[in-house]
Design a protein around this nucleic acid. Structure first.
Lengths: 344, 344
DNA sequence: CTGAAAGCGCTAACAC
DNA sequence: GTGTTAGCGCTTTCAG
């Protein structure tokens, strides 16, 4: 049989065995690095594998071993803006390369809102053994959903938010510390009256930590602080800035909960003829690509999305293999970096 | 056996059969909508499926049917900017929902550059039957790579670029028409001296079509046109604008090959104290989110990424099922929309 | 219309 | 060290 013929229909383990003149089990042993395979046999088998362009069938492997080599990257959040969040790319890109490095594939799912087959679809795919575990990416997840994930027995790592119950492992970043660094930076530049634009009703740990970090830091520095409600979007940032500027006592720094709101605040300032940073400092949070493009460029906090993503994959893998140290705390926080630009 | 017990270890088809008091084959027939199953039997089986929370094992199905229900969404392009391209999210999001609607999952791969396991990894995953076909997303793909994909027998649909050989099916958008619309818009606003910033050495059909569409439209309108080299990035847009402005005869409109370069051009104009659009019009191409956030906001061409993505999935599916009409042309082009904003 | 048999490609358990 | 047997969960024959 000529090697080329094998390309018609993919070679199987038995084809390799026949070609190498050994039993199919020997081939399997070679592939799984079983000890005590004679080097010459091993070489013969490897040659046959190469000659026949053999690739193991993942479905057969998964069926036999009842474990799959696919991980799910699940993004929660339904708004068009959220779907388009550039940070999702970075996260997913890091997921993919980290997972691939461990021999896993990544399947991506979209959760939340009215999207058909959101959480139910995730569960169905898991029950069908389409993937072995998931990283759920979101700044906020309803507690009921977290309990569901835990109840389903779905191996899960939360990304960018924590489980208040401490059941699900999570990878987050130091939001509070980021806010503290920002406040310190602003105070050192002479700012004394700080306003933070952030949703006031968001239960997600991401919002809560930013809020509390801000308030605590302002208190520690002895400067005035206040919260202005705003819902993560560009438009919300614009509106919040206008409200703050319409008031009697205007702040000398407007901190925004994310870059998108920061861009909105800059736009409102420009429209109102307010000079940034001379009259008021403006900052964001996330360090999206467009933070470099605004006028003036946006001072912000860089979130280490790539490192977080790689860590999340590793934590998920150790969860799946059961090698997670039992004393490991569920939460895990990576540091952020202040990125001073023109706006503050 | 109590239903709850089944949750420990997932229920199989035989469990369902035992619970419903039929043979396992009958359950399979019910699931596959085989004709001539008695309604009462069918109902009993459905009840058992629900009671046991049965979900078919995709690996077993794939093994038996030798076809998988996973499609690969492969992004080509290595630069950090490309990875962060917001349009990738939209494309992927549409892929996922369209594929899910047809009962398929999506796995995502990153190709290109020095990324370990790029094209070789894609082929390996395909050979392992990790997915059945792929959509390759990129504005440009080396012809050699296209020939590889075709040679491997990998069912492929190209997204956002065409196969010059016409072998691989593709879904693109009307780049030339978009440029023509933009030129018409600018001419109607009194512009007579147009410069297009775009790579001059990019062989990708996306760049070629934008370039040629621009030149043809300018010729048709009888206005002056020129090409200024620039390599898709923000910084390239900035530099190109500065070069154009440093010259003797400045254009009255600077068209940029994408929004990122448009944002760079706006920044350069601002830095040079050039008023946009009074002194010069600036435009982009793509309609990224940040085109709304620049100052002034960026006039651009909206590319129907979502519709293209859905179409690409459907074309891939018909390719896989062999139901593609044989006379269907390989290329397929969707229309673009002009989005006039402040900058032009 | 329903049941029994065979096998997709692979690996874990035993013989040899 | 190597080969044989059995079976993961499913669907496609083919008998009843």
């Amino acid at each position: 049989m000529h090697p080329e013929e094998m390309f018609m229909t993919r070679a199987t383990l038995r084809d390799v065995a026949a070609y190498a003149g050994v039993s199919h089990q020997t081939v399997s042993n070679v592939l799984n690095d079983h000890p005590s395979i004679r080097p010459t046999t091993r070489q013969r088998v490897m040659d046959a594998i190469r000659a026949l362009d053999y690739h193991p069938n993942v479905a057969a492997k998964a069926l036999r071993e009842s474990r799959v080599t696919t991980l799910c990257c699940a993004f929660y959040g339904h708004s068009a803006d959220e779907v388009a969040d550039p940070y999702r790319n970075l996260v997913q890109s890091a997921f993919i390369s980290e997972a691939n490095a461990h021999g896993y594939n990544i399947t991506t799912a979209l959760l939340g809102g009215d999207r058909p087959g959101g959480f139910e679809g995730l569960r169905a795919a898991y029950m069908q053994r389409a993937f072995g575990g998931a990283v759920v990416v979101s700044t906020t997840l309803p507690p009921g959903r977290m309990r569901e994930l835990a109840a389903w027995g779905l191996p899960t790592v939360l990304f960018d938010h924590e489980d208040p119950q401490g059941q699900l492992p999570s990878v987050t970043t130091d939001y509070a510390g980021g806010m503290a660094g920002l406040v310190a930076h602003l105070v050192s530049r002479g700012r004394r009256d700080l306003a933070l634009v952030i949703p006031s009703d968001d239960f997600g740990s991401s919002a809560v930590l930013r809020r509390e970090g801000f308030l605590a830091a302002a208190r520690a520095h002895g400067v005035r602080s206040r919260i202005e409600a705003g819902a993560w979007s560009y438009e919300a940032g614009e509106a919040a800035f206008r409200r703050l500027w319409a008031g009697e006592d205007r702040p000398d720094a407007v901190l925004c909960g994310n870059d998108r709101m920061g861009a909105g605040a800059l736009s409102a300032a420009r429209a109102l003829g307010v000079r940034v940073p001379e009259e008021v400092a403006v900052s964001g949070f996330d360090d999206f690509e467009f933070a470099r493009y605004t006028a003036p460029s946006l001072t912000t906090i860089h979130v280490p999305h790539e490192a977080m993503a790689r860590l999340a994959v590793r934590r998920l893998l150790s969860l799946l293999s059961g090698t997670a140290p039992p004393d490991e705390p569920p939460g895990c926080q990576l540091p952020v970096t202040l990125v001073p630009r023109e706006s503050a």
